[in-house]
Design a protein around this nucleic acid. Structure first.
Lengths: 213, 213
DNA sequence: GTATGTGAACTATTTCACAGCT
DNA sequence: AGCTGTGAAATAGTTCACATAC
């Protein structure tokens, strides 16, 4: 739940707006100019009411009786979501997961530029992955500030995650995407989003355990 | 929201039980035998009431005035979550992300064994990653059945995700962890969990957009 | 006729608060 | 005294349903 000019908006709404935006880009690619909330919902596995409610938090973008203009709605969402801006991102930890993120082709299209990578293993320092050179973790503060990085991705083992977090916070980072299976302690102004791969899989497996029970 | 012997339990509760379980293992490692809901909550960034409520869905595991026995609670949670069982997992797509998953060390500790990998690129077929040999996507059905695989991870590009999903469903898969940024259409009995890395980062970046507004 | 926008109803989830146990 | 277990209250989020607009 997020505060936007004294309105309370579910965090899940924000997340879905990105889904609508992506779908609108696809629609525009195939020259579809108008779409109803029902159709947009169909394509994103959401209900028509959900689509309308989500958009309704931010204004009135549709035309009664016909639907939404894809170009206009896309432009409006881009504005709302700050997609005119781009962000510099750092990856901490250059193991397999860190490497996957460093070479993930999807980020750039979304205004997310990975401009730095850090690892603690001497062997990895100075290796170049695409445009990014791996630096030592000791240089976090210096590089984060120099490169104007606003988002960090933690892809280190659980036991070093808290220490890394503290370095990042000291360097002024306020947004962290955390892949380590650890509960990070951070000041209030810092936003952490956890992605816990084992937990996702385990939660899924619970469905198997509990089925036909 | 999940049905367990005519009780309705939030899906998020299930997911948190895995977090408690992990924390209990840590506590046992350092010889802590008793823990209160408040302390357990502290360590997992959750409230004491949340911890008690979550556990309360499944029974009474605590002792008034003292707290929970770590060993007993761990054993109880393992039983509830089916952690006595192990699951065979397939990864579809052996790009960087697929490779990261194939070599991710965390799964095995959680009863999740990756026993097959698939890719469409001829170049990759028959390559061996650890114990797993990459097979052609055409063999999905054969191998899924032969190896008794119950969970599949989709790590292919968005445009091939639906086709892969259909092959998996035909092969009898009922649990899918989907990393492709695409809304998958599946029959009702199939459970899909989406992990959308760009979306996670974008949602996080919205925090930056909207701050100090 | 068709589809939006939105209060109201409903459902889900978390937090409160306290009786009761050790 | 301290902490659990749990109804009740509060908060959050989704779906309904319909007046309104084109």
């Amino acid at each position: 739940m997020v505060n936007v000019n004294n309105k309370k908006i579910p965090a899940s709404t924000i997340s879905r707006l990105f889904v609508y935006l992506r779908e609108l880009s696809e629609l525009i690619k195939v020259n579809i100019n108008t779409i109803s909330s029902a159709e947009l919902g169909e394509r994103t596995n959401l209900s028509d009411a959900q689509v309308r409610k989500d958009l309704g938090y931010f204004g009135q973008f549709g035309v009664s009786g016909s639907g939404y203009n894809t170009q206009e709605l896309k432009a409006a969402l881009e504005k709302i979501l700050g997609r005119d801006k781009t962000w510099n991102v750092a990856v901490v930890g250059a193991g397999h997961l860190g490497m996957a993120l460093l070479t993930y082709p999807g980020f750039a299209d979304h205004g997310l530029n990975i401009v730095a990578a850090f690892d603690s293993k001497a062997k990895k320092i100075d290796r170049k992955i695409g445009d990014v050179t791996i630096s030592t973790i000791d240089d976090i503060e210096k590089i984060i500030k120099a490169k104007n990085i606003s988002i960090a991705i933690i892809a280190v083992p659980a036991q070093s995650a808290q220490a890394v977090t503290e370095k990042l916070v000291e360097a002024g980072i306020e947004c962290i995407l955390n892949f380590a299976p650890a509960a990070l302690a951070v000041p209030e102004n810092v936003k952490v989003k956890d992605v816990d791969l084992s937990r996702e899989l385990e939660t899924l497996s619970y469905f198997l355990v509990n089925k036909k029970a």
